[in-house]
Design a protein around this nucleic acid. Structure first.
Lengths: 212, 212
DNA sequence: GCAAATTAATGATTTATTCAAG
DNA sequence: CTTGAATAAATCATTAATTTGC
């Protein structure tokens, strides 16, 4: 059925540069030729045909593509680098807060935890979305007041518990429930300063935690 | 006008614990008393009144608040730590991609750059919002094909330029425009391998870049 | 240095949740 | 399933601590 296709010089549909051609082209590119003129392309083409079949359009396309892809690579590398720097900076900042217990680390952390950024980091896309939509989140840290909105006081008789406990306490009724160890409660041998108390009380959690 | 307000024991509206009282309370808390019973509160109160005016409810509230805020502090420390780890992990990952030119770093970075997360990091709240709303962004990296959607081929006559240039080249019209230095174009002394080309061509940009 | 202004800490209250008994 | 006691979480309000502009 099939007719006689030339079995010798298989008709490849597109130019396939030989290693020598590639080397030369790259060298010229590095040498400063980024967008050769028509005449330059002609010269290059004739020179490169010493190393294999080649046409002017091949040279033209090669420089076009090479330049574009060079720019692309650079752009991406730059962005990646920027991102790395961003991460480094963030990390340093948080490490500082973490290590030194900075005074305002709480508010910063709270703001972060409330941000759509954090929610996205956690994969809570829906939350982040609605938050952004409602304009509920302010990027400015200083106006990050809670949006309590309308807390209807539905429960006006809710302080009963507290009052009962208070009555219990203030009406002087000692020794009621459970095992009370009144005497052991006051082993007051405090030689620890308040500052020491605070600093030693806050331990670093063990680092076997993972994200998400 | 103003009547005689007791000028002696200025009527402070709320209890202000003396340093001794605080020390004792903290010591007891550290000793294990987290939610004292009514009777315990009574004992503590009577003991602490040796060091200054105090009521049962003060003790009650103090333990409530102290316990709650202790938990809170722990929680926040944990979260901060988690966040630090997250950042570290991200950083290490990107550093790896950056340093080693990993094969799929491009798609990863592209995906990140297209994500609302990145837009939020840049402060482009609106963009992120609409993106999330439209469901335009897929969190799963594996289905992160560009949502090219409907790229209407509005530009059907766009290859005209290209065609003109091709004609210029292949119709063999040498020495047309500009200063052509045909001979100096081929100083082919290439001893550089392709690999070296690539690796040396991509330099790290200078680190004076800032986020946002 | 100091006094007003801002911010953080914490005592006091209110609201929400848990859990056991009925 | 409902109820109520107990407690945890959230919030309000005042005091202590810091910053800031003379």
């Amino acid at each position: 059925m099939s007719p006689a296709v030339a079995s010798a010089a298989l008709p490849t549909s597109r130019w396939c540069p030989t290693p020598e051609q590639l080397m030369i082209l790259e060298e010229m590119y590095r040498g400063g030729i980024k967008t050769p003129t028509a005449s330059q392309i002609h010269h290059i083409t004739s020179y490169l045909s010493l190393y294999g079949r080649i046409e002017g359009k091949n040279v033209f396309y090669w420089f076009q593509n090479h330049k574009a892809r060079d720019r692309q690579r650079l752009r991406r590398k730059l962005l990646l680098h920027q991102h790395t720097l961003h991460l480094q900076k963030q990390l340093m900042y948080h490490q500082k807060l973490y290590d030194h217990n900075q005074p305002n680390h709480q508010s910063h952390l709270l703001h972060y935890l409330d941000s759509p950024l954090h929610k996205l980091n956690q994969g809570r896309v829906e939350d982040a979305s609605t938050q952004l939509l409602n304009g509920t989140w302010k990027a400015d840290l200083h106006e990050s007041g809670y949006n309590v909105a309308n807390l209807t006081n539905r429960f006006r008789d809710c302080d009963s518990t507290m009052k009962r406990i208070m009555v219990d306490i203030d009406a002087s009724s000692p020794c009621r429930n459970r095992t009370l160890k009144t005497l052991e409660l006051f082993p007051i041998t405090t030689t620890v300063s308040l500052k020491d108390q605070y600093t030693t009380a806050t331990q670093v959690p063990n680092p076997s935690l993972l994200l998400e």
